[in-house]
Design a protein around this nucleic acid. Structure first.
Length: 511
RNA sequence: GGCCCACUAGCUCAAUCCGGCAGAGCAGCUGACUCUUAAUCAGUUGGUUGGAGGUUCGAAUCCUCCGUGGGUCACCA
């Protein structure tokens, strides 16, 4: 749904259904009684959790006023029970006609529904069943909910939460994430986990003396990754701009500017297909550290993930799709050549041209894209054979030069660069290398890429002259690192789809 | 973009294979009930079966096209 322009002809898209009609009538009845169904102020003295602990510490008869959404309502004629929930948790309300009067009981029965926000004043009490509750002496509407939330009923059985109904339609959960969050407590918990992952990453970087910075999202020239960008336009400047596909080239400019260690956590945008591990916008952590090479970056990376795990769980082991994954350093390290040899049975160094390698792949039953470069073929072997097998955290190192235009060539091997990717749970989680700081080498690499991609035309990447100018002032030797934060959250929250860990994943417009 | 699967009441699902009155639970509504907690008990409303077309005496069901989502493959310096 795009911008909405109001005209006389416009009709509201919303047509109240029967349940909503009912609630609109109740809303009208509340107003007719001279009550405000949407008051601006509340008199809350306790959160639900605070009221419960007040009962536990001070006993019964503590005066409290609590607020929250009605989650259950059990009407029993001259008595009623409800659970309300706020951000701290739930508490039970106990209504009695002899305490409230018949009029108030009638009002509760007639006008209050699941999903409404209410305020209740009363005293703490333990019911016969032992449940901490508020014996209500007064209550009022805080927000009349018009649309009914999906009802999710559950009970505790031997400490386990058993669910009897649900809001489970994946598409509706994503399109109406607010309803998903309101109905499904474990979804709320998941995004708390996400926030803790991000906070732990930030703590780790700060402890390691990195400076957090912010670089442009709107860029005149995009770069730093292999991806198609989104294009937008600045009206007044008459300038096309790109949404960034990585932070890399800007962060390294900052090393030229004499910050030793910088990092950024932010959004990248890539105009590509969507999948269970790709969303058009996603969150990335990149850091650059002067005087480190890719071996030292590996140590930082494994320490970082182990730190996050300890912050979240107290240990370094996590469960992912039924498998136990141990993030404790040091992680396994193997070269890309060895990894492909082990899993695909092809030693790509024996097939040094695209034609040779494609032939070898065909001999192994592959159907390689005949337009692929040698490096692309190697990369596809990595994706199909190696990646799915790497469940425990693994660094795969030393990549072909022609798919790594920003990474330093290995001293004794001009065909490979000092680059690693790391894999956990069968998924690529990040990418890093010893950064090229020779401006003339970098320029040559850009030109090579330009030549390679001119042929295919559509992905031809522009030369970033300003970046080369920065390099010419001198950038210290450094290591750089990038990781997909959403994928880390998938790992720590044990979710199979990136959409599950994005609050508002990208979906096609309806209609 | 290719292929496969799904779309039925506000929610979760059945009926689809093999065409024959579109059903259940929850929610809602009416009533009973002053310690319930998936409250209970009795009664009850609610449907353009994702959309359009076709086949047929008859379509939720079969066919075609479209839409959306999921999966998978492809794409993704």
């Amino acid at each position: 749904m795009g911008a909405f322009l109001w005209t006389e002809e416009c009709t509201m898209a919303w047509e109240p259904n029967d349940l909503e009609q009912r609630r609109l009538q109740k809303l009208q009845r509340i107003r007719s009684a001279g009550l405000d169904p949407y008051p601006a102020r509340t008199n809350r003295t306790h959160t639900a959790a605070a009221a419960v602990s007040a009962l536990e510490r001070e006993g019964e008869n503590v005066a409290v006023t609590v607020c929250g959404r009605i989650r259950s309502l059990r009407l029993m004629g001259k008595a009623a029970f409800a659970h309300i929930e706020d951000g701290s948790g739930k508490i039970q309300l106990f209504f009695r006609a002899d305490a409230l009067g018949e009029l108030a009981m009638d009002r509760l029965e007639r006008d209050y529904d699941l999903g409404d926000f209410v305020e209740a004043t009363g005293t703490t009490v333990r019911t016969r069943a032992g449940e901490p509750s508020v014996l209500v002496s007064d209550f009022r509407m805080l927000t009349k909910a018009i649309s009914p939330l999906p009802v999710v009923k559950e009970q505790q059985v031997d400490g386990e939460r058993v669910r009897y109904s649900a809001f489970a339609d994946v598409e509706e959960r994503y399109r109406q994430r607010y309803a998903d969050l309101a109905s499904n407590a474990e979804v709320r918990e998941l995004f708390r986990t996400r926030a803790r992952v991000v906070a732990a990453l930030r703590q780790f970087m700060d402890q390691e003396s990195f400076l957090e910075v912010e670089t442009p999202i709107l860029q005149p020239i995009y770069g730093g990754a292999a991806a198609r960008p989104f294009v937008t336009h600045h009206q007044q400047l008459h300038q096309d701009l790109y949404l960034r596909i990585s932070f890399e080239l800007y962060l390294k400019r900052l090393l030229v500017g004499m910050y030793d260690r910088v990092y950024e956590i932010g959004r990248d945008f890539r105009n590509e297909g969507v999948s269970f591990k790709h969303n058009p916008e996603f969150t990335q952590l990149e850091f650059y550290a002067a005087y480190l090479d890719y071996n030292q970056v590996m140590e930082l990376a494994e320490n970082m993930l182990a730190y996050v795990a300890r912050q979240l769980t107290g240990g370094t082991s996590i469960e992912s799709e039924g498998q136990t994954i141990d993030l404790a350093p040091p992680w396994r390290r193997l070269t890309l050549r060895q990894a492909i040899l082990d899993t695909a049975g092809i030693d790509y160094t024996q097939h040094p041209t695209a034609k040779d390698l494609a032939a070898a792949m065909r001999a192994h039953g592959h159907q390689p894209d005949p337009r692929s470069s040698w490096g692309k073929l190697v990369d596809s072997l990595l994706g199909t054979h190696v990646e799915p097998t790497l469940i425990q955290p693994t660094f795969v190192l030393d990549y072909p030069r022609d798919i790594s235009p920003l990474a330093k060539t290995k001293p004794n091997d001009p065909t490979h660069v000092e680059r690693f990717e790391f894999f956990i749970a069968g998924m690529e989680m990040g990418n890093a290398f010893s950064e090229i700081n020779d401006p003339l080498d970098q320029q040559e690499r850009f030109l090579e890429m330009g030549r390679l991609y001119d042929a295919k035309d559509e992905d031809a990447h522009p030369m970033d002259e300003d970046y080369l100018r920065a390099m010419r002032y001198g950038m210290p030797p450094c290591g750089g690192f990038g990781t997909g934060v959403d994928r880390l959250v998938m790992l720590f929250a044990d979710r199979r789809s990136i959409r599950e860990v994005l609050l508002f994943p990208h979906l096609r417009n309806r209609e």
